[in-house]
Design a protein around this nucleic acid. Sequence first.
DNA 1: TTGTAAGCGTTATCAT
DNA 2: ATGATAACGCTTACAA
Lengths: 356, 356
Amino acid sequence: MMSEKIDLRRIARELNISVSTVSRALRDSHEISVETKQKVFALAHQLNYVPNPYASSLRRQKSKTIGVILPELPNNFFTHVVNGIEYVARQKDYHVLIYITHEQASQEKALIRHLQSGRVDGVLASVCAQTNDIEHFLGLIQLGIPLVFFDRVYEEIGVPTVTTNDYEASFAATEHLIQQGCKHILHVCLPLHLSISRKRLEGFCAAMKKYGLLVDSHSWLVADDMESFYRALETRLIGNCAPDGIFASVEKLAITVYHICQKRGIRIPDQLKVLAFSNLETAALLAPPLTTVTQPAFEMGKKAAEILFRKIEKRREIFEEQHYVIPSALIARASTLGRLSYPKFSEEHVAMNAEK
Amino acid sequence: MMSEKIDLRRIARELNISVSTVSRALRDSHEISVETKQKVFALAHQLNYVPNPYASSLRRQKSKTIGVILPELPNNFFTHVVNGIEYVARQKDYHVLIYITHEQASQEKALIRHLQSGRVDGVLASVCAQTNDIEHFLGLIQLGIPLVFFDRVYEEIGVPTVTTNDYEASFAATEHLIQQGCKHILHVCLPLHLSISRKRLEGFCAAMKKYGLLVDSHSWLVADDMESFYRALETRLIGNCAPDGIFASVEKLAITVYHICQKRGIRIPDQLKVLAFSNLETAALLAPPLTTVTQPAFEMGKKAAEILFRKIEKRREIFEEQHYVIPSALIARASTLGRLSYPKFSEEHVAMNAEK
DNA sequence: TTGTAAGCGTTATCAT
DNA sequence: ATGATAACGCTTACAA
């Protein structure tokens, strides 16, 4: 009942030819006669032969596998990035090993260290929020294992990066809030050692200053963990000096905002306008529809993978220090629009240009 | 600048001991002296040694890797399932290879065939909607590679499955709609060769019959592809015999319903009540909040992985034909509730019992 | 407690 | 055009 595993030796024996001939025939080598190839193909197919990837990887010193390191998986941005990566990997006939750090530096470190084993030919990573220690990545680099960062990057260490135009998109989003009448905008974000947090905060601050609005340390709130963030934000929203606008640096913070508003009866957009970096598929269906800075997630994953494969295929090239930027789109919906109340609202789609 | 790769030989040479001693020391074998172990550990650590997984896998004939086959990734249900799988895999020190079929049978076939190579020690799969051909899975089974299905399963072929209580949850959800006054409910679902589609449809039909409501071939609408589904549903919703309730078998169909209602100004729940199997994190924030049958996604992934590892660890055991069922929860929200209009609504949480 | 050597399944080199 | 053989890096009998 249980069929045995077929290897090259078996095929060779049955056809009375050598293992190396079989190997070459299966790889369609030009130095093998057409007849032999046909015989080999036929038998291999009949026996349902599938080459052992570990033997092959060991011998050839390449794994046909790339590793993807993510902070979390149930996240619309990251799943679309992975789709983009997978799209390219499939074309290259590569396998995708996914590792999730759950935002924990210890896991990120352990994973990266493990990947120095040669298990993968290259690594795509979006770093975790908990730390800014980069030692472990340097280990990978020193071993010559290609690495590309996407979204959450370290720009200092000479590794290609793929990001969206965080600063500019954030600037434009902030301008949008201001133009809708907000004067006291609260920016909520992840810890500031993350590149995305810093750039988006910078874009926010720059726009505020441009319009002469006050920016101080109360203008932003960092979410170290979601529980304490929830409480801090709730306090802030029901207090005396509540903001009239919230700019959420990442999607899940915006969802928290909505939950608090629902619970506390705060009316969006009348009392509070809300805007977020988000790839939520249901953004247009929320109460009220959420204005988003929508990131080109699929394209970012695709681009990052393409760069990685270029590095894998010809290591000697010097395109370190390449920083690709793919622009996000601001999609204005009811959560930031004037006095319009749900469900009457207009959608405005503003594409922004790439920088650098 | 580029550091070289370290192998056992290198460590052995430097310590003037044999490769096998190093190997045993690193695996903390009891037949190696404490001193030697310490020396080896120290040097291994200093040189940043990481064992080559391909060499090890080839020799030991196991990969320490499991494969996960999914129809799609940007899907709240599947991402949480993967989290559950990953939770278990991490404990077992296993790697997770993710493959996405994009609902295409050809890809599913090719993937499964490839996995007969020994690349993985076991496979977790949720089958694609496009086919009900199971040949390829039989190939895996014959090679003795452990397989567990989750969510979208084939029950006929003696493979353990992990599902939610699709029939019962669907029955209860339909009852809920009926109790809220619906008389003409339309069930929208994926193709019926999928186990989940069939069971949920059966639960729906049974409940309808129980309450003496008409069930015929117009009572359900199958979504073969999303474009034609959108058009068909839109036609149906604005036509003469529009339903007064919609029961969506999977989340993305419910989202389509919401989009159509928004576009056509159909008021939920006044004109149309809507309910769906869904793990949408924003269900409570939609306009109006969506009543869901929430599946225990994480637990399903965890359970499926646990069963898989039991199979991997002791192949000889006969627990084929195990079918685990983990119940879903009906969470009633405004989209199905009486004449209440948003945002005043109450949440009702109804847990259902497991079956079988 | 440690060393020697074979072998996992494939590919690459060198013959023929 | 094909075959013999070594090697990839590790594990594991079997010896010592």
